[in-house]
Amino acid sequence: MRVGTGTRITLRVVALGYLFVLVAVPIGVILWRAFEPGLATFIASISTPAAISALNLSLLIIAIVVPLNVVFGVVTALALVRGRFRGRGLLQAVVDLPFAVSPIVVGVSLIMLWGVNGWFGAIDRAGFQVIFGLPGMVLATIFVTLPFVVREVEPVLHEIGTEQEQAASTLGADRWQTFWRITLPAIRWGLTYGVVLTVARALGEFGAVIMVSSGFPGVSQTLTLLVHARYIDDHNTYGAYAAATLLMGIALLVLLLMTLLDRKRSDR
């Protein structure tokens, strides 16, 4: 389609103007507000005891969620790609389910299952607190991040087929050797990409986690909950801007990593 220069410039200006107003200006303003009082103020605001423990809690949740997602995600991807069993289509659909569920609904569902009056309420009554404790936040985070590793590893498994694994097995390798030496190296970039997506989402999850957390500063507050609490409860607007800027910095780092990994994967 040939477009006149005038039209082309108009379209460009409209598109860039939209992005500018919606994305660039707000981000510019928040950066300015976070750093305007000086770098020292910013650092002081993100290194209060509550902020440090929030960062630690977020990292702890990631440290629990990522290995679980890696192990079960790879097993799930293998089963979905290689398995021939009834109900496979159903499992495919279940893996996609978390994308269609609102984070708040995730939280409510977990309360209905693990809460004191839920189906598994006996666990809570026996003294092992799930909802309003770390396990609840971990379960919520796993729910929302479950599809990432599966969906990134699956296409790679399709692509590589089973020929190399069959060769390895013919040469006498056992299941584990085949997996460690053949399958894992082949899926490593897909897996890494899935892990990066998982980390980004786990760090940024808010709706599902706020429903199942007691939200005490220094105890059960993740970074996202800290941003919310500072703005709403403490009326510490600057603190909220600073913490949000920190999260944004991490998100940008993740975005950069994603771009690099994507390039690496397409080069292969």
Partner: peptide, 25 residues
Amino acid sequence: FVNAIIDLPFALPTIVASIVLLSLY
């Protein structure tokens, strides 16, 4: 650069999106 910016809303935690927009509007 513009193309990279498009992905930003996916990478940014939603609560940060909220704060970012509040700082301007």
